[in-house]
Design a protein around this nucleic acid. Structure first.
Lengths: 211, 211
DNA sequence: CCTACCGATCGGTAGG
DNA sequence: CCTACCGATCGGTAGG
């Protein structure tokens, strides 16, 4: 079982793969213990490296955090972008909610780091993320505003209603276990139902079916 | 303007007051920058002390965090305890929501530290807070369950609905500025309306008036 | 990718 | 309440 390094048997792991492995491990550690409570030595140990060796793959702890947070932001934005704006507002909102919960369910670690630690990014990187966040919120706000005009929803302020909706979705990382008894689909169904209720959905559009 | 210490003019600041001053300053600093990003030297500077001098008033950083978080928990629990269980469920829920938002509005710093940093408490202290948290959640869950039985609410799972309601309330520290354009009362009115909608409030109880 | 190191800073204590 | 200090640990770098 002795395994001495030799150029012949050195596995062809590219720098890119290694970097990815580091970011994934960081996602696990940061989501469990928090950004500041995880040291670079903890991270190195998780990928079987010495502390200093990390820096041939990444340039700083801040960069690793940014990578994780960016991956989460990308997934949420891609999910929202897939929702057709041709749908009636209530169905559009239902699709946004379901998309969000789907991302949450299979990327809960990145999402957790996103919500928990994005404020600790360096100022420049934090403002990039703040921009994406606003972009994402706009999908919800505009859908609510559209429904407000067609009469599908009855809300006083689309901006406040969007924050309200996203509050329930963003909080999920705090308590939800995708592997637990409540399936992502069942969660999506019940949340969609309650959220459409909060928006005063009238069910007057072409298809009033909810859940 | 020279001011030499003399027992005659030493202000009668008791140890208790000093301790309180430290905890209040910590509430400000932790809520702005986070627990781990605030050093004990930062805290000392904020109350015009040298670093080591803090420890004649408090015993550890963890203890200071616990104090802040406990104060927040106490206020939320006291607020919920004031709501009469004789009220019909929808009015009871409205009162719980308004109470929560009132505490949030005038104790937003403690509340922020509570939600943001309670997970960094030492294990023993963290479990005490977890207990209070569950206690508070029970007020909401039981009110929803009661409304579910009387037909005032239409929900599938009171437990999930309680989490849903608290999500919107707990998230508020992330975006709300009590001194901004949206007054606490107006926020409470709109949130109560949306939340009762989410719970499928029928307005069938004695007084259906909502906002 | 490792060894060995850097300066800075951390929370907390001793002794007065 | 201060001065002076403690050991530990931090993120990051140099040189190979």
């Amino acid at each position: 079982m002795s395994r001495l390094p030799s150029s012949a048997e050195t596995p062809a792991i590219s720098t890119v793969d290694r970097r990815d492995e580091i970011v994934e491990a960081a996602g696990r550690l940061f989501s469990e213990s928090g950004y500041h409570t995880t040291s670079m030595r903890d991270l190195a140990r998780a990928v079987n490296l010495q502390g200093g060796s990390l820096y041939s793959h990444i340039s700083s702890k801040d960069e690793v955090l940014f990578e994780i947070v960016t991956r989460a932001a990308d997934e949420f934005l891609e999910s929202a972008a897939l929702v057709s704006t041709n749908l009636p507002p209530d169905q559009r909102m239902a699709a946004l909610i379901q998309g969000h919960l789907r991302v949450m369910a299979h990327e809960i670690r990145h999402a957790t780091v996103f919500f928990q630690d994005w404020r600790y990014l360096s100022p420049e990187r934090r403002s990039i993320i703040a921009g994406r966040r606003d972009e994402y919120e706009a999908y919800f706000r505009e859908t609510i505003a559209a429904g407000s005009e067609t009469g599908a929803f009855r809300v006083e302020s689309p901006a406040l209603a969007a924050i309200f909706v996203l509050s329930t979705l963003n909080w999920i990382y705090q308590w939800y276990d995708p592997a637990g008894a409540l399936s992502p689909d069942e969660l999506a169904r019940q949340y969609t139902r309650m959220l459409l209720g909060a928006l005063g959905a009238t069910g007057d559009s072409q298809s009033g079916g909810v859940g």
